[in-house]
Design a protein around this nucleic acid. Sequence first.
RNA 1: GCGCCCAUAGCUCAGCUGGAUAGAGUGACAGACUUCGAAUCUGGAGGUCGCAGGUUCGAAUCCUGCUGGGCGCGCCA
Length: 560
Amino acid sequence: MSIVKNIENQIKELIEKAVFRAKETGLLLFSALPDYVLEVPREKVHGDFATNIAMLMAKEAKMAPRKIAEIIVSNFEKEGTWIEKIEIAGPGFINFYLDHSWVYEVLPLVLEQGDDYGRSEFGAGKKVQVEFVSANPSGVLHMGNARGAALGDSLASVLDAAGYDVTREFYINDAGNQIEKFAKSLEARYLQLLGDDVPFPEDGYHGQDIIDTMKALIDRQGDKYKAMDGELRREFLVKYALEEKITNIRKTLEDFGVYYDVWFSEQTLHDSGEVAEVISELKKDGHIYEKEGALWFNTTQFGDEKDEVVVRSNGVPTYFAADIAYHKNKFKRGFEQVINIWGADHHGHVARMKGAIKALGYDPEQLTVILMQLVRLFRGGEILRMSKRTGTYVTLNELMEEVGRDAARYFFVMRSPDSQMDFDLDLAKSQSTDNPVFYVQYAHARICSILRQAEEMGYSLPNLSQDDFRILTDPSEIMLIRKIVDLPDEIVSAAKNLAPHRMTGFAHDLASLFHVFYTNCRVLTAEPEMRNARLLLTKATGICIKNVLKLIGVSAPERM
RNA sequence: GCGCCCAUAGCUCAGCUGGAUAGAGUGACAGACUUCGAAUCUGGAGGUCGCAGGUUCGAAUCCUGCUGGGCGCGCCA
């Protein structure tokens, strides 16, 4: 239970006691308590907490909201709590003003918990899977993948910190038509490099990377596949190229700070018979029919716009069929909640995927698809259309080289998934020092600098009790501490709403409050008791900034 | 044509399950370094929350319609 939730529960309990007391004495008429909220008002003048309960009771009680508020307040017992003052305001809000001392409790807690401060048991160990990026393995990672990577990894971190049992997973599409095309492209390049004048497939992959891959193969193994039967040769080439591609993808993601727990191959679903199995299961339950030689899944029964082919007339299962088997596999592995991060261009698949899950007897609510809008890339004021097929794209590696990993990750996480992003490379480069990530990192570096100097001056950091911190009464100090108190709830909130971008907002607020504190309060030159309290507040702030940046995947430098 | 997402300050975007006077950043303007990092801080300026209705004590938020933009509607993934 977080410090804020504790206080809130206490106040709520007292509100409800007051309401029922008023009912018993006949002052207030109602049958059931309304679904009211106790919240932290946006405006500071409205107190530390406020409730709308009086307004919600007005209709049933047949009384003016302000009158109801008066009755509640007159029946409210605030003795023995931090509540100093209660006021009725506006249309009938009840505002609670607290003795600010309640916030000091957090400082010894942060210093004790360190890296763990902010973590909570909210998720109660629920098994959750986040599947993200899952890029076509025949290419390299581009800007859209980068956004998905930053988003998915941060979401997973946030869920983990909120007490969920999180698995990060990458689904490798190493089967199907795409791979066929890939194979033909590889073969053409291979033969071309060995001097054969063979045509390049029109719908093939034109990227330079494929040529490089085949060059390297020839350097290493010569022309040993040249005389081989076509099908066999393509199989070898694909296996070779995929291994290299996937290794590169993994390495790029690790450079980006993203580490997966599971790399799941689509091909294994075909090999193990799970795809065939899931099709026959659906067939048995009457969800599949035959038309024009193909097998169709009646997804319209589950709210989709039109039915979908699962097995083509040539007998080859579609990507969708494999995806159904994949999701069944996920649930069989015990995940209670499955989160997929998809590009907005895949939104048409959501309904049918949920339908498939329902058809298999699972609850569609167990699948959440986060659709992220695609990234538009600008360079020199021009939109760059990104396409693997035509080979025009900016890779994640190039992005990291240009703007740096920290800036890139912060930038992607900062925006909510459903905002369209214009990423201007020139701007990102030229403005790199104005990037908000530096603002937060600067606060951390400043903190480290202060602590470093304290050490050089021979000041040790004592263990202070909650009461020792009462000396911190400057508004900038109280506001900073109040923000620190919020961290665990903020993480839970980001987890509940699957909104990691809230963490960048929190990081920025925290850094800002620290900069204000720094401007208003001297740390090292204060009297010993004050100096100790401020040093520890500084340290606690540093811990929080570092913990939040970790969730975003951004480093917390000690010097800049 | 149908479906999904978006529209908030000059620009880029927040705004949690409906709450009080809609917030940051950035740009422009005016200030603050004899003192712990000025990559900082302080101040004012900047708004018909796309438009029009509706729901109610109360709407940027929910509902309907419209306008404008993105994406999708394949025996591709």
